[in-house]
């Protein structure tokens, strides 16, 4: 039973047609990789899912319910959460401030509403613990953290919305090799909790190691829908570049992974 179902999405910007009838489904606890070259339409497709863009045609359903007419805020309330590549963190503020940014818990003192710092810190710590993420200290500015630790904070923030689908845009692109594993572990943790994950990434090794299925976009079409366990680097690379002899490119991708 798929949780998020995207069918026949088309989208053009003026004369430029970006998506030509894309299908994609994500089930609860399923990790789906979304790969493709730059300009293949990955970002546009995800913005249609989060409601930033409106599709020209096609349907987006969540639990069988059509959400095309919903605003981004309403879709978030239905459990669709996106973590952007730049993470959108306030780097001089601490972990709790970032996790609760814009919806700080308050308590009333003499009829005035004050931010409940203790509650924020406790709940932020609980969320970090639930993720099993390692952070130096919860009361330090997140700008002092490594890229992977910042990614953990962004994921923890997404989790506080109780999402059912988390879309991650290039979560490992800017990370040191050692930290990539940590983020992939976080993705596996989301999967264990029954959350559906869409992973947009250029790092095919990461995609192959953590996903259940891989959807390859090529020139605005879903060129392939591969079951990861039955697939390999050659098949993915071939679908990305649109066929032909890709042995050399695939070998390069494999060696580029390094670890």
């Amino acid at each position: 039973m798929s949780l998020l179902k995207i069918e026949g999405i088309t989208k053009s910007f003026g004369a430029v047609s970006v998506l030509h009838g894309v299908d994609l489904t994500v089930g609860a606890g399923e990790v789906v990789g979304l790969v493709g070259d730059n300009g293949a339409g990955k970002s546009s497709l995800m913005k249609i899912v989060t409601g930033m863009y409106t599709a020209d045609s096609g349907s987006v359903t969540m639990d069988g319910e059509d959400i095309v007419s919903n605003t981004p805020g309403e879709r978030r309330a239905k459990g669709i959460e996106m973590i952007y590549q730049d993470l959108a963190l306030a780097k001089q503020q601490d972990v709790a401030s970032n996790i609760f940014l814009g919806r700080e818990p308050t308590r009333s003192i003499l009829g005035m509403q004050f931010v409940d710092g203790k509650k924020m810190r406790d709940e932020a710590q609980a969320m970090i613990d639930r993720l099993g993420a390692r952070l130096p200290a919860i009361n330090r500015p997140v700008g002092s953290f490594s890229g992977g630790q910042q990614q953990s904070v962004a994921i923890a923030r997404a989790l506080t919305f109780n999402p059912r689908i988390v879309i991650m845009d290039e979560p490992t692109a800017a990370l040191a090799v050692r930290e990539v594993q940590g983020v992939l572990d976080l993705i596996r943790q989301l999967k264990r909790e029954g959350i559906g994950v869409i992973l947009i990434s250029h790092r095919l090794n990461d995609v192959l190691s953590v996903t259940d299925r891989i959807v390859v976009l090529h020139q605005g079409r879903a060129a392939a829908n591969l079951v990861t366990a039955e697939s390999d680097m050659t098949a993915v690379v071939s679908a990305i570049v649109g066929g032909g002899d890709v042995a050399e490119a695939a070998a390069h991708e494999l060696s580029a992974g390094g670890d």
Binding site: G73, Y84, D86, A88, L89, A90, K91, Q92, Q93, S97, N98, L101, G102, R103, E104, T106, M112, Q113, F114, V115, G117
Partner: peptide
């Protein structure tokens, strides 16, 4: 008190820190 302990104050600092983060957070 307002700057250090209220939503208004915290949002003020967050906007100055990263306008993008604040906007993404719905401020």
């Amino acid at each position: 008190i307002v700057l250090a302990f209220t939503k208004f104050g915290r949002h003020t600092l967050s906007i100055g820190d990263s306008e993008n983060a604040a906007r993404t957070a719905g401020i």
